[in-house]
């Protein structure tokens, strides 16, 4: 049910006339759900700003929340959800905070003598408007949380897959943590790209920090080595712990002619010897 412009201005008048009462009762309502996690002064500031936002949208004659005339209010609500999401409030608490405006308004309508059919209609239209606002907050909240999670996942991936230059022409990837398919793919692509960017013909994949190697992980490592070879670079695998060596043999995984070394230091020595030999041959 859309708000007519007369309803809008009547409601805006009502707001205007009872600003303090609305803010007080609304703040009270929110304070109950947030249970002291936000200071009363902070809440008061938020509700009074939002209240102004609602008033402006209603005064302007916005028929619903998605109208251009309510753009400013939407921005305010989005801002609110964003802060709430980052402060760790639940989606429920955030949306209820907006719904609470209805209660505050209902008190007003009941108090007034003009509790006639007209006022009731106004209230219902207004109620629908607030519902939209609360749903909008809910949506925004979910979107923001999803963005947060995606960002964190990406950061985690970045953090966990560094590719470092170890020596002239030698890069290393110290792998730490469980390698799943997605991560293995990221590692693989980043390693290969670094080989190209730095023109390094040698790469050391250190798996000291990998707790377990199953067939799938071994497959990913093998594929990386083969891809690097296709590009003209050699990979050495280091940091194979005793249990992992046992698993590799037990699983029947063939590492073929891929060089494996016990430690990163051994691997580096191996590479330097390879490049050193070539130098001597000249």
């Amino acid at each position: 049910m859309a708000l007519s412009s007369e309803q809008g201005s009547r409601l805006a008048d009502l707001f205007k006339g009872h600003e303090d009462a609305i803010i007080a009762s609304w703040t009270e309502e929110i304070a109950r759900t947030t249970r002291g996690r936000l200071s009363r002064a902070e809440l008061q500031r938020q509700t009074s700003e939002l209240q102004k936002g609602f008033q402006t949208a209603l005064r302007g004659g916005a028929p619903n929340l998605h109208d251009d005339l309510a753009a400013e209010l939407r921005a305010q609500l989005a801002e609110l959800s964003s802060t709430r999401a980052r402060q760790g409030f639940t989606a429920n608490e955030t949306a209820v905070g907006v719904f609470a405006l209805k209660d505050a308004m209902l008190e007003l309508v009941q108090k007034g003598d003009e509790a006639d059919a007209g006022a009731l209609r106004d209230y219902i239209a207004f109620s629908a408007f607030v519902d939209q606002a609360a749903l909008f907050t809910f949506d925004t909240y979910v979107r923001i949380r999803e963005e947060l999670i995606a960002d964190q996942a990406e950061q985690l991936l970045e953090l966990s897959t560094p590719v470092v230059k170890l020596w002239e022409g030698v890069v290393a990837v110290p792998l730490v943590g469980t390698l799943d398919s997605a991560r293995a793919q990221v590692v693989m692509e980043r390693l290969l790209q670094t080989l190209v960017d730095t023109g390094s013909p040698y790469a050391i994949i250190d798996i000291t920090g990998v707790p377990a190697v199953d067939t799938q992980v071994a497959q990913h490592i093998l594929k990386t080595v083969v891809a690097a070879r296709l590009m003209g670079a050699d990979c050495i695998i280091s940091g194979i712990r005793p249990q992992i060596a046992q698993t590799i043999v037990a699983l029947g995984i063939e590492f073929g002619d891929i060089a494996t070394k016990a430690t990163l230091a051994d691997a580096l020595r191996h590479v330097l010897r390879l490049t050193g030999t070539k130098r001597q041959e000249r």
Binding site: M188, E189, L192, Q193, L195, V196, G199, S200, P201, K223, V226, A227, A228, R229, L230, M231, G232, A233
Partner: peptide, 25 residues
Amino acid sequence: GMRPAVAITLVELGLSLPGIRTALN
């Protein structure tokens, strides 16, 4: 100069280009 994405795809395709020597650049 084989690109990483090309190398990964070739591995998946099962093409290992035996007998071809390669270099990064």
